[in-house]
């Protein structure tokens, strides 16, 4: 352990505080904004002293937005529900498809396995806009545009490669002979997969699932193009606050706060898995 003087400790503390302030400030400001009206938000110079109001949250939750130009229907809560449903369902489908595939890529060496795995990863390279136009046309032709099913399918572009590649590394880290020991004791490969490989790779699967959830939650462009108002997630729904009578900053801020709560809660809950899962070598041979 290196020796640290009091001065070093103090400097380090100051540096860490600066970094935290820098990165946390936008979030802090958003939280402040969510308790203000547009008038107090837009005054110059800005001040952190104001009369807090919960009107923004009330508007979001009741679905009625009162503006100077009149009242407006907003379906923020249904957007939130859409986000939750789309992200959960996408991750569930991604896990069901991706985990067995990751096992196959990790354990079985077959002709072309590397190519297929790489192709799946390459979905992440392509900018979404590149595929969106043809995808939109196809989806309209086969009737998948503006359906949950279609959206969940497209979300696989985001979640599947992520799950596949993280979990695959996990399966590769499990010594094959642990599975062989189980197989030779009279178990099929499927029950070996279920009883040995899956539990040992669980931290990795949890981490991959969580990351995939966050990525799916934060997706904007696919839902913007492929979903109509009643199926839009919060990321797209927030656009509704850009109204004819101006941008409703207060509601935008409250919407942001509400929409980061689920992922924040999930991340805090699964923090342990996330750290464990993303640092390799958690399985000791």
């Amino acid at each position: 352990m290196e020796h640290t003087s009091t001065l070093e400790k103090a400097l380090r503390g100051v540096a860490i505080t600066c970094v935290i302030l820098f990165f946390m400030f936008p979030i802090f400001w958003i939280v402040l904004m969510s308790f203000q009206t547009n008038e107090t938000i837009l005054r110059v110079p800005p001040s952190i002293i104001f009369d807090p109001t919960i009107q923004n949250y009330v508007a979001l939750i009741t679905g009625r937005l009162e503006t100077s130009a009149g009242s407006l229907e907003i379906n923020f809560m249904s957007n939130l529900w859409n986000s939750l449903f789309l992200s959960s369902a996408s991750v569930a489908v991604g896990l069901i498809l991706g985990v067995p595939a990751a096992y196959a890529f990790g354990r079985l060496k077959f002709r072309g396995s590397e190519d297929i795995a790489f192709t799946l990863l390459s979905f992440r390279f392509a900018p979404p806009l590149l595929v969106l136009l043809p995808l939109t046309i196809y989806f309209q032709q086969i009737g998948l545009a503006d359906t949950y099913f279609g959206l969940i399918w497209v979300y696989q572009l985001i979640v599947l490669p992520l799950i596949l590649w993280i979990v695959r590394g996990y399966f590769e880290d499990i010594p094959a002979d642990i599975e062989n020991a189980y197989r030779v004791a009279g178990h099929s490969w499927f029950s070996t997969f279920r009883k040995v490989a899956l539990p040992l790779a669980m931290p990795g699967i949890a981490a991959a699932g969580l990351l995939a959830f966050i990525f799916a939650w934060n997706n904007f462009i696919f839902a913007l193009v492929l979903a109509s108002a009643d199926k839009q997630p919060v990321t797209v729904g927030a656009l509704a606050f850009v109204t004819a009578s101006g941008i409703q900053y207060g509601q935008v801020a409250a919407g942001v706060v509400l929409s980061i709560l689920p992922t924040l809660a999930l991340a805090l809950y699964a923090q342990r898995y996330l750290v464990e899962g993303l640092s390799l070598g958690a399985v000791k041979g």
Binding site: P175, I178, N180, A181, V184, A185, S188, K284, G285
Partner: peptide
């Protein structure tokens, strides 16, 4: 045949105990 159907027992050089 797959290992499950061969009815053999094996001790592994790398031990391969179930870690859980």
């Amino acid at each position: 045949l797959p290992p499950v159907r061969r009815h053999v027992a094996m001790a592994f050089e790398g031990y391969s105990l179930y870690p859980t």
